[in-house]
């Protein structure tokens, strides 16, 4: 704490032995530069990633995932520099696909967005410590986040319940098969509840309309992008998947529903939206193109709820494959 290395929670001392054990699971050399992290423009070496992972309590087997996550969020299209500086409450959420979900005990069922005992909080915290210690994000120094978000302590780390999904996994739809991490600039999580609907269109309608709240960043005239991420519970997913087996149809439906009539807004908000041509048939859409709607299957079999994660609006979602490391001895050799 005195060194300014931590988040206020207890840290595991990053002794050389612990850090070496972590590096061994990466299959990489310790001084290898994985990325330059903004705004500090400091090098995230394999060793720095390992040190922060030890401090966070992450398991050594998570090293390939952590490295892939650093690569994904330092892709220029993710715009880490402004994400780290913004007044917004954005945090890079990590969505995990592939068999690695089971190996790392990444939650994708009940309680997957928080509360499941497992490695996800420590893995998310490792990324948060890297953003603090290497990227240099500090509140009131390099970050002006007006509120922050609980996700800035232990991240938002969850998986897709691929086995219950009627569609291809999210990462595969984004171009990466198998073990993969998708990094998404999330403005936190919010819940959608429906205890009345019983058809695919009911569920898509209540989700889509819930997405379209006027203060969402996607409605800002300055937002270049307005991606949105929806987690559909497996009970609803089965119903929706039968009616709409093509994921593009689901995206189109959510895009259509996620809009508000322009007259709902005061003229001071209406004018700039009209000026940039985002008005369609008297409505303004939260999302600018259907393909910017991301959805996945996650959540418990209790159903009744969906989760929506609005985007900040500048970061473009990035997906990276998580390489497999054969075993500790091979990796260390």
């Amino acid at each position: 704490m005195e060194q300014g290395w931590g988040d206020g929670l207890p840290l595991i001392p990053p002794t050389e032995a612990r850090v070496r054990g972590m590096i061994a699971q990466s299959g990489r050399f310790p001084d290898e530069v994985v990325a330059v992290m903004l705004p500090l423009r400091a090098e995230a070496t394999v060793e720095k990633i390992a040190i922060n992972a030890v401090m966070a309590g992450a398991p050594p087997e998570a090293m390939p995932l952590l490295i892939a996550t650093v690569e994904a969020m330092t892709d220029p299209k993710f715009e880490l520099a402004s994400l780290n500086a913004t007044t917004g409450s954005v945090v890079p959420a990590m969505i995990i696909n592939g068999p690695i979900r089971h190996k790392l005990k990444i939650p994708f069922g009940a309680g997957c967005l928080g509360g499941v005992a497992g490695h996800a909080p420590a893995i998310g915290r490792a990324i948060r410590l890297l953003i603090r210690n290497v990227a240099g994000q500090q509140i009131d120094v390099t970050s002006q986040s007006t509120y922050g978000t609980p996700g800035r302590v232990a991240g938002i780390v969850f998986g897709e319940w691929e086995e219950k999904s009627p569609w291809a996994p999210l990462a595969e739809r984004l171009g990466v098969k198998g073990d993969a991490v998708t990094v998404y600039g999330a403005m936190g999580t919010a819940n959608i509840c429906d205890m009345i609907g019983n058809t695919a269109d009911h569920f898509l309608q209540i989700i889509g309309k819930s997405l379209a709240y006027p203060g969402a960043n996607g409605f800002l005239p300055s937002s270049q992008w307005s991606e949105v991420l929806v987690a559909i519970n497996p009970v609803w997913a089965e119903v929706v998947g039968k009616a709409y087996p093509n994921p593009e149809d689901v995206q189109q439906k959510l895009y259509d529903y996620a809009s508000i009539p322009i007259d709902f807004l005061d003229p001071v908000y209406k004018e700039p939206i009209e000026r940039i041509g985002r008005l369609k048939n008297g409505r303004v859409h939260l999302i600018q193109k259907p393909e910017e709607v991301f959805f996945m299957v996650a959540g418990g079999m209790g159903g009744l709820h969906a989760a929506m994660l609005h985007s900040w609006g500048t970061c473009l979602t990035t997906t990276r494959a998580i390489p497999q490391v054969a075993d500790t001895e091979t990796a260390a050799a």
Binding site: P13, P14, E16, V19, M37, A42, A44, E47, I51, A135
Partner: peptide, 11 residues
């Protein structure tokens, strides 16, 4: 006394 490694990057 124990020693730990520095987690920070710097420019």
């Amino acid at each position: 006394k124990g020693y730990v490694l520095d987690p920070t990057g710097f420019r």
